[in-house]
């Protein structure tokens, strides 16, 4: 299974490309401006991934910095950098989108 990371806001094409490619059982980590993809009002694609049982995480430091703490979509799990490393060790490979 693949760990996908996304560091661009929904304004960019990276989100669409990621969503076309990601498969059930994969994991998505939103980081830097990617955390906007999991915020209220901009979370259509991430909502679809969650509905497909794809686990979606977001780096807490990036969420807090952007004022999104109370705006994140239910189902997106906030993690710290240690949690990020842990996820990396659990997946066979990784793909960066952005």
């Amino acid at each position: 299974m693949i760990l996908h990371t996304l560091n661009k806001s929904p304004e960019h094409a990276a989100l669409g490309r990621c969503c076309e490619t990601i498969a059930t059982g994969d994991v998505l980590v939103l980081l830097e401006d990617g955390v906007y993809c999991g915020s209220a009002g901009r979370d259509r694609q991430v909502g679809e991934l969650l509905a497909q049982n794809i686990a979606v995480y977001a780096i807490n430091a990036d969420v807090q910095a952007r004022g999104l703490a109370v705006r994140m979509t239910r189902g997106v799990t906030l993690i710290d950098y240690e949690g990020f490393v842990q996820l990396c060790t659990e997946q066979a490979s990784s793909k960066r989108w952005g």
Partner: peptide
């Protein structure tokens, strides 16, 4: 416009 969003907390960055 996100630059103006309230409650930004960069203490972890």
């Amino acid at each position: 416009i996100y630059q103006l969003l309230a409650n930004q907390d960069t203490s972890l960055l």
